[in-house]
Amino acid sequence: MDSRVIAELVVHLGRIASGDGLVEGLTPGQWAVLRYFARANRFSRTPSAFAAFHGTTRGTASQAIKSLVAQGYLLQTRSDTDGRSVRLDLADKARAMLAKDPLEALARAADALPPGVRGQFSNGIQRMLGHLASETGKPPFGTCENCAHFEGDGCCQEGLAPYACGFLKEPLIEEELDELCINFATGKAVPPRPPGVGAV
């Protein structure tokens, strides 16, 4: 298939999934904010990280975030280490709202794909995102397990956490491994987890 056609299909898919107007009282932009903070790890729940992820200005990102803080969807906490920065977390109200996310229709469409096709599609999209991030100079967000900074194999050693971020020198818990991170660096294959770890 022609690469231009693929690009147009990706854009069209995203446009249909996000919709044009209000859904449950939120704009497509506000839904994007909630989705990001639902998936971002504790190091990436800041207005600047959201702006980088969505390729928008900090001013535009701040306005969208402020409206959701005012409506009680996001909780804002001052950083203990840097009084100028804030961390944003989802309120229970936002978690309940995400159950009605219009993106669920797209998730169901992805779920209808055969498992092998789904894996190939996911890998292809991730490679496209990485290439686009490199070409445009934007940070390549990703998750811990295929990050060059990821350390650990899930086995507990005396005095050490089973997983850690080598970039920030911070321990990680298993639940954080699938969350988005602004400090992501490409270049590491996904390591195998010990039997039973991460199984659902």
Rank of each mutant, 00 (worst) to 15 (best):
Met1Val: 12
Met1Tyr: 08
Arg4Lys: 13
Ile6Val: 15
Val10Arg: 05
Gly14Glu: 12
Ile16His: 06
Ala17Pro: 05
Gly19Asn: 02
Leu22Met: 10
Leu26Lys: 08
Gly29Glu: 14
Arg35Ser: 03
Ala38Cys: 02
Ala38Asn: 11
Ala40Trp: 10
Asn41Gly: 15
Ser44Ala: 11
Arg45Ser: 13
Thr46Trp: 05
Thr46Pro: 06
Pro47Ala: 08
Ser48Thr: 14
His54Ile: 00
His54Gly: 02
Gly59His: 10
Gly59Ser: 09
Ile65Met: 04
Ser67Thr: 11
Ala70Gly: 01
Gly72Met: 09
Gly72Glu: 06
Tyr73His: 15
Leu74Val: 04
Leu74Phe: 07
Leu75Met: 12
Thr77Tyr: 13
Thr77Trp: 14
Ser79His: 06
Ser85Tyr: 01
Val86Leu: 04
Leu88Thr: 04
Leu88Glu: 08
Asp92Ile: 02
Lys93Gln: 13
Arg95Gln: 08
Arg95Leu: 14
Met97Gly: 00
Asp101Met: 01
Leu103Arg: 07
Ala107His: 09
Ala109Met: 12
Ala109Val: 08
Ala110Gly: 09
Ala110Met: 15
Gly116Phe: 02
Gly116Leu: 10
Gly119His: 10
Gln120Leu: 15
Ser122Asp: 07
Gly124Ile: 03
Gln126Trp: 06
Arg127Phe: 00
Met128Cys: 05
Gly130Asp: 10
Leu132Val: 10
Ala133Val: 01
Gly137Pro: 08
Gly137Ala: 04
Lys138Tyr: 01
Phe141Glu: 07
Cys144Thr: 09
Glu145Gly: 03
Asn146Val: 06
Asn146Tyr: 11
Ala148Asp: 13
His149Leu: 04
Phe150Trp: 12
Phe150Ser: 02
Gly152Cys: 07
Cys155Glu: 15
Cys156Asn: 05
Leu160Gln: 15
Ala161Leu: 09
Ala164Tyr: 01
Cys165Ile: 04
Gly166His: 04
Phe167Ile: 00
Glu170Cys: 09
Glu174Val: 07
Glu175Val: 04
Glu175Asn: 06
Leu180Cys: 05
Leu180Arg: 09
Ile182Ala: 11
Ala185Asn: 11
Thr186Glu: 15
Thr186Asp: 15
Lys188Cys: 01
Val190Trp: 05
Pro191Phe: 04
Val197Gly: 00
Gly198Ile: 03
Ala199Ser: 06
Ala199Glu: 13
